[in-house]
Computed example of a mutant assay.
Amino acid sequence: MKSSAMGTALLVVAVLVAGFDATTAARHWDTATNTVRHLHTDGGDGGLPWECCDFVVRDPNFRPGLWQCKDVVNKCSPNCRECTASPAGNGYVCLDWIVSLLEPPVCTPRPWDCCDQAVCTRVYIPICHCADMVASCPTNCKQCELVQADPPRYRCLDSFFGYPGPKCTAPWIMNLTNNER
C-alpha cells in the first residue's frame, strides 16, 4: 500500500515538473551575464543559438534544465548572442544558455539510443561506454556482444566521445538488472 502511495506522489511531482513554465524559471536567471533562450521557440526571439551539440553542459542548480553548448565551431550561428574565441584558439564557442526539460539533440549519433549504466572517463570531454544488457543491440551499434545466453542479453561495446546521453528509464522506476528492455 505504501509503495502505491509513493508512486502516486512521484507521478504528481513528475507532472508538476513537466508542467513547470520555463519562462517563469528564466526570469530568475541572471540574464545580464548569460543569455537565456528557450529551446522550442516560436520564432519570436531569432531562433536557437545551435541546432545540435555534442558537448552539452547542464547547470545542475537550475530546474527544469539550463543548457549550454561547448562545441568548438568555425563560426557561430547568426542566432548566437555571445560568441567568443575558443580557449584553444581553433574556433569559436557560443556561450548562450537555453531552457529546456530535455537535453538538446547531439550532432554525432551515439551507438545507443539511451543508457542507464554509463561508464565514462573523467576528462574534459569523456569517452563513454554503455554497460546495459539489452534484448538486442541498436542498429547504430557496430560491436554487439552476447553476454548472457538464457535469456539472450547483449551489450554494445562501442565507445562514444562525449556524454552518454539520456537514461532509458526514469530514476524512480529504474530496474537495476535491465532485464525488461
Rank of each mutant, 00 (worst) to 15 (best):
V123L: 13
G44N: 11
R27D: 04
V147M: 08
T31M: 02
D116S: 13
S77G: 08
C114H: 04
E180K: 13
M6T: 07
N34F: 00
N34A: 08
L48N: 10
P105A: 03
M1F: 09
Q143D: 12
T139Y: 02
C107S: 01
F20L: 15
T121V: 04
L10P: 06
C107G: 01
F62Y: 06
V73A: 13
L101K: 12
C76I: 08
P109F: 06
S136F: 14
T31N: 00
D132S: 11
A88L: 09
F55E: 08
L39P: 05
V134T: 14
C76E: 09
E82Y: 07
C137N: 03
I127M: 04
L102S: 02
L66D: 00
N179W: 10
N140V: 01
P164K: 14
V17R: 15
W172R: 07
L48E: 05
N178D: 14
Y92K: 13
T31W: 00
I125V: 15
R58K: 14
D116Q: 14
P151T: 06
P138E: 10
Y154C: 03
P78C: 05
C141P: 08
C114Y: 02
G91H: 08
R58S: 12
G44P: 01
R81I: 02
R122V: 14
W29D: 00
W97K: 05
V99P: 00
W67K: 03
N74C: 04
A32I: 01
L10A: 15
N140F: 00
R58V: 12
T84G: 03
D59Y: 00
K2A: 15
N61W: 11
D59E: 12
A85T: 15
Y124R: 01
P109T: 09
L48M: 06
R153E: 04
V72E: 12
A118W: 00
A25M: 02
A85K: 15
D96M: 11
W29M: 00
Q117M: 12
A18M: 09
G91K: 09
V93L: 11
D54T: 10
D21Q: 13
P126E: 08
A26V: 02
A26I: 03
V12E: 11
I127A: 05
C107W: 10
N61T: 11
R37G: 01
V93A: 07
L16D: 11
Y92R: 09
G91L: 07
A118N: 00
G162A: 08
P105Y: 06
C107V: 03
S3G: 13
D116W: 04
S4F: 14
E103H: 05
G65A: 06
P111I: 08
G43I: 06
N178L: 13
S4E: 07
A170D: 03
R27H: 03
V99Q: 01
V123I: 11
T177E: 14
N74I: 04
R122D: 15
I98T: 10
C128G: 05
L16T: 10
C69T: 03
S159Y: 07
A149T: 10
C168M: 07
G47C: 02
P151K: 07
D113Y: 01
F161L: 06
N90Q: 07
L102N: 05
G165K: 12
K70E: 14
A118E: 06
D54C: 13
L11I: 08
C52P: 10
Y154E: 01
N90A: 07
